[in-house]
């Protein structure tokens, strides 16, 4: 049993690229669901928009990555408008239904054979997607690895910039939610009619929250495409959105640092149990499981953990119990 391997692998993944991607998606959800109360079950569509913007602009059209980032943001804004304008005047459930359907619609469209020339079909887009970014890598060319964290030179640069992005968006969310703007969206989360009666254009605020959350999610997709140098349609399944919700709830919805804590915790649990079980099976400690079971077992554990959290600490790690204990109506 190689404990140090389990620990380094867990730590590397806990603050690694996947954690950053999910963290960005969860920050977006925090704006939409945590603060504004919008049930966006299609966050993965925004992530896909970011990834595919990079894939299509850089690979299909052979243009600059920086242009791709701008396109990714614009596409995310357009998606938010398409989803929001018809549904945000209706009750909250409608947005949930429409967004989950839309996210599958996006995945099935981008992987369809009809757009294979542009979007790459089921194989997705693979190539030097993030070259413009990786060319900016300031790390020494002979860089091997950090002491404990086993990232390559390329990955480490993505991780550094990724966490800077997380910090910037967290700062943005912090500034927004403590402002009068944040007061309005929190009011909307609780009772739209009350906010309308005070002369606030609730629809516009909901749309702004949806757009902002979508753009932050799209940055998750951009990081993904740049880091993996590949865009795969089937990674954008609805599970992605549900994992992002899990992260949000773990950390505590409507808490500025909720998504960061949640993402790290999520990957500690997922990677930690995975690596531990894998090692334990190899060492012969556990004989009733096969190495192929590990992938599923860790989600069973994650689910159980989430249930336990909802029962014993429904406000999440950072949430305010007082705030939750009050009846909302």
């Amino acid at each position: 049993m190689d404990w140090s391997f389990v620990l380094t692998q867990t730590l590397t993944q806990a603050i690694g690229i996947q954690a950053i991607i999910y963290c960005l998606a969860a920050i977006g959800l925090n704006v939409q669901f945590g603060y504004t109360g919008l049930l966006n079950f299609g966050q993965v569509a925004f992530v896909a928009a970011g990834s595919y913007a990079v894939g299509v602009i850089v690979l299909t059209f052979d243009l600059s990555l920086w242009l791709a980032i701008v396109v990714g943001v614009v596409v995310a804004l357009v998606i938010a408008l398409i989803l929001g304008i018809p549904t945000l005047r209706l009750r909250a459930d409608y947005l949930a239904i429409v967004t989950i359907a839309f996210s599958e619609l996006v995945r099935l469209t981008v992987r369809s054979i009809a757009f294979k020339d542009v979007l790459g079909g089921a194989q997705g887009l693979n190539g030097k997607l993030g070259q413009d970014f990786h060319d900016t890598n300031p790390l020494p060319a002979d860089f091997q690895s950090l002491p404990v964290l086993s990232w390559t030179r390329q990955d480490l640069w993505v991780v550094i910039v990724g966490w800077i992005l997380v910090a910037l968006f967290t700062l943005l969310v912090w500034l927004l939610v403590r402002s009068p703007w944040g007061r309005i969206v929190r009011g909307i989360r609780e009772d739209e009619a009350a906010v309308v009666s005070l002369g606030k254009n609730v629809f516009a605020y909901k749309l702004q929250a949806l757009m902002l959350g979508g753009v932050i999610g799209a940055f998750g997709g951009i990081v993904w495409a740049v880091a993996k140098q590949s865009v795969q349609p089937d990674t954008f399944r609805p599970e992605f959105t549900f994992f992002a919700y899990t992260i949000l709830l773990l950390g505590g919805a409507a808490r500025v640092f909720g998504p960061i804590v949640g993402a790290i915790l999520f990957w500690i649990i997922l990677a930690g149990t995975g690596e531990f079980l894998g090692q334990a099976i190899q060492a012969g400690w556990i004989d009733f499981l096969q190495p192929t079971d590990v992938g599923n077992i860790r989600f069973v554990l994650m689910g159980s953990g989430l249930i336990a959290l909802m029962v014993f600490r429904p406000q999440g790690i950072f949430g305010d119990r007082r705030e939750l204990a009050l009846d909302a109506k």
Binding site: R186, A194, D327
Partner: peptide, 21 residues
């Protein structure tokens, strides 16, 4: 919301105090 802005503000039969604020 526009009516509220031009000076016509209402309250509700079932009070809408925003309880988590």
């Amino acid at each position: 919301y526009k009516l509220a802005r031009i000076g016509m503000v209402r309250t509700f039969q079932l009070t809408k105090a925003l309880s988590r604020m």
